[in-house]
Nucleic acid binder design. Structure first.
Lengths: 132, 132
DNA sequence: TATATTAATGTTATATTATTACACAGTGTT
DNA sequence: AACACTGTGTAATAATATAACATTAATATA
């Protein structure tokens, strides 16, 4: 569950854009899209993105350098994320599986070490791309 | 187990450098290090890196844009990777856990979909950093 | 051997992604 | 008021990665 954060103007503009997008968005494509709304510089975008990631409203898809809104109420503020990525159409979906999160949150390595955070990216073909 | 690949000159130079490094290396730091050996341009580095990743001799740490040699005989040619990353000292270790790989290789999402590939990055504090 | 094919190289230029540095404004606290 | 903290605006630049094109090396196979 997300703690409610009041977003600032820039954060809100950028979150809305990402939230409405069916696909992950890249920083500079966000920039081009919000220039008419007064956000002119890369840094303004990156600052908002950093904050939004920090508070868990969006996630970064590391292998794609792109950002997606969080639609998973069980992900604890950007600390435990899992995605499926279609290698053909690039569709990205956040995976919300209680089993998976439990398994990973409790995973201990050889040295018995547990981790405070993880990011998992699965790759394959989505249903559509798999059947054509 | 790795299929044996004969590396080309550039690939060998770059693999040796990464293999000897205790830390993941970034593309441009690789470039600076191999310029004395005749590799002058970024593209020469990236091409070798791409190939080395493809054949599983190295892995890319996506969250760091850095490359590490594979020391895990059970990772099937870059298809299934897991790392632990220390958020203080940036030490990166490849995790080789039969249980983990089995769990992830067999993971099915809500739609029953299985994936051909994954990359998992755990974050936390390494032993050293945790105790000081 | 000749020739076709594929993979790798070399080089220049450029695209894309991200940060540094500095000045300033708003808000809340002591 | 003085201070700390967070966010903003702007310009410049650093860091990461790819496009395009010409050439060479290695492999395969007729």
């Amino acid at each position: 569950m997300h703690k409610e954060h009041i977003l600032t103007k820039n954060q809100q503009i950028i979150f809305d854009l990402i939230d409405k997008s069916p696909e992950p968005l890249k920083a500079y494509s966000i920039l081009f899209n919000v220039q008419k709304r007064g956000i002119k510089a890369p840094l303004q975008v990156y600052r908002a993105l950093d904050k939004l990631v920090e508070i868990g409203k969006i996630h970064k898809i590391e292998s794609r350098n792109a950002f997606i809104a969080c639609h998973n109420s069980s992900c604890q503020v950007a600390k435990a994320t899992a995605f499926s990525i279609c290698e053909i159409c690039e569709k990205v979906t956040e995976i919300s599986s209680a089993g998976l999160s439990k398994y990973l949150a409790n995973f201990k390595d050889k040295d018995g070490m547990k981790y405070s955070k993880y990011n998992l990216e699965f790759f394959g073909l989505c249903k559509k791309c798999n059947t054509r």
